[in-house]
């Protein structure tokens, strides 16, 4: 059963900014190969949860386990090196690097080659090949040698994923990967996500319910910083509380 191989587990994560509770005892589990969606109304704490899991912010209390190991005290880069990588809702790319350079950089950082100042970059053949493979897989090979800032918006969203994939994550957290992308292109983006390696665990935030129901194996519903429900799509679809939240009643704060 997939439920037995839990890759990522959070245990009662708690975080407040002043009097505002942004995470209320959040405990979720992500099995290996999961395709879990994280949904909830605006301000529910979805991005906060991703920030907590990746280490951008530290919880007031609670713990995060990666493959059974407590990573709560680890910094962002350390968690990436142990296999927890995210993408950003608003592009965080390298505007003046080409996609080839940017992804090669990410591969070099993973392989601890990025400190080598005496070897030419061109000598890092394996890293360059891997970077180009990732770009090819994401249909970015044609623009691999153009500055990232000149790419189309949809291509930039793909670059977010390409940079994350270069770290070889065990857990990939996608913060609204299709944010701002036209509907026809967002389906294409999600087909890329669906084609990710089967042993990679993916947690994605998405507002488009048809995409959520189509691509997720489980859905985590977050409301007011707390988990309302974690269940299969069919269960979530029928749950009256979820319907209520999505009809815009603000009773769950």
């Amino acid at each position: 059963m997939p439920g037995e191989d839990i890759v990522l587990r959070t245990e009662a994560l708690q975080k407040s900014f002043g009097s505002l509770e942004v995470a209320r005892s959040v405990s979720i589990e992500l099995p290996r190969g999961a395709r879990h969606a994280l949904i909830g109304p605006n301000g529910a704490g979805k991005t906060t949860l991703i920030n907590l899991i990746t280490g951008q912010i530290r919880p007031d209390s609670g713990k995060i386990f990666l493959e059974g190991r407590d990573v709560t005290q680890m910094d962002v880069a350390g968690r990436v090196r142990h296999g927890v990588t995210r993408t950003f809702q608003i592009n965080e790319l390298f505007p003046n690097l080409t996609p080839l350079e940017a992804v090669t950089l990410a591969v070099c950082e993973r392989e601890d080659l990025a400190g080598q100042f005496w070897r030419p970059l061109t000598a890092q053949k394996a890293a360059i090949d891997e970077a180009f493979d990732i770009l090819t897989q994401l249909q970015l090979a044609d623009v691999a040698t153009r500055p990232t800032r000149t790419l189309s918006y949809g291509q930039k969203r793909l670059m977010e994923i390409a940079l994350a994939l270069a770290t070889r994550p065990k857990v990939l957290l996608l913060d609204e990967p299709a944010a701002g992308v036209p509907k026809d292109e967002s389906a294409m983006l999600f087909s890329v996500i669906a084609a990710l390696p089967a042993d990679m665990s993916v947690l994605f935030i998405e507002h488009d319910m048809s995409l959520v129901f189509k691509f997720s194996s489980q859905i985590v519903v977050l409301v007011g910083g707390g988990v309302l429900l974690q269940a299969e799509p069919d269960v979530v679809r029928r749950d009256p509380r979820v319907r209520e939240v999505y009809l815009g009643q603000a009773g769950y704060v």
Binding site: V76, R81, T85, F88, L97, T104, L105, T167
Partner: peptide, 17 residues
């Protein structure tokens, strides 16, 4: 290349490890 990465986007650097 990593230095140019730092110059281009410091937020992203830890996120690629």
């Amino acid at each position: 290349l990593s230095l140019r990465g730092v110059r281009e986007n410091l937020t992203r650097m830890p996120a690629i490890g």
